[in-house]
Amino acid sequence: MKIKVVSNILKANDSIAEENRGLFKENGLFVINLISSPGAGKTSLLEKTILLLSSPPSKGGKWGGISIGVIEGDIATTRDAERIEKTGARVIQINTNGACHLDSNMIRTSLRDFPLNGLDILFIENVGNLVCPANFNLGEDAKAVILSITEGDDKPKKYPGIFREAKVLIINKTDLLPYTDCSIDKIKKESLEINPDLNIFEVSCRSGEGLDRWCNWVKGKTREEQKLN
């Protein structure tokens, strides 16, 4: 006997992602899922972004004291959460114990111990991997892919899935450009062929160059989200 099924293999993940999205909306949060290969600078970008966005105007902050939470995903260790904790942001670590990506159920479970009240932005730092996280929605508003120039300018075409899914591309480590053969123009051209709507930011987390433009974008999107609420 034949049975017509037509059942999405990832539907269990997608339906929990929608529940997470509902919870994020209730709290008026703008949620970014940060995805890159290991060592591209996800945690460094977070450290810098948090310090810039959360700094109150009384201490010279340009962005008006935005409140930020972080869910840190790693296969093992709490090293990234410890780094983020030093910035003063609210943080929780998820250890996937071998799994190559975060899934929506891991996020739902972590939210039981992670109050969202009072937050404006939630960053979810995925496991370092350019392949698998692209397939697993977590309930985020935007996926942001980080590509560091030392990884090479051929990566968008080699990992098209994540470049198509993402709303943002952050090209990091631009301070190292003179020491590599990487072409930022090629990264931009080939990633825009995959996804013409990508918002592209060139930054150096080390020198701080380019981070203002990125922070302006994040703040703008956060305001839009809060107006909708």
Binding site: M1, V6, I9
Partner: peptide, 8 residues
């Protein structure tokens, strides 16, 4: 990425 049909 889906299960289309079964034969049982």
């Amino acid at each position: 990425l889906f299960v289309d049909e079964l034969e049982v």
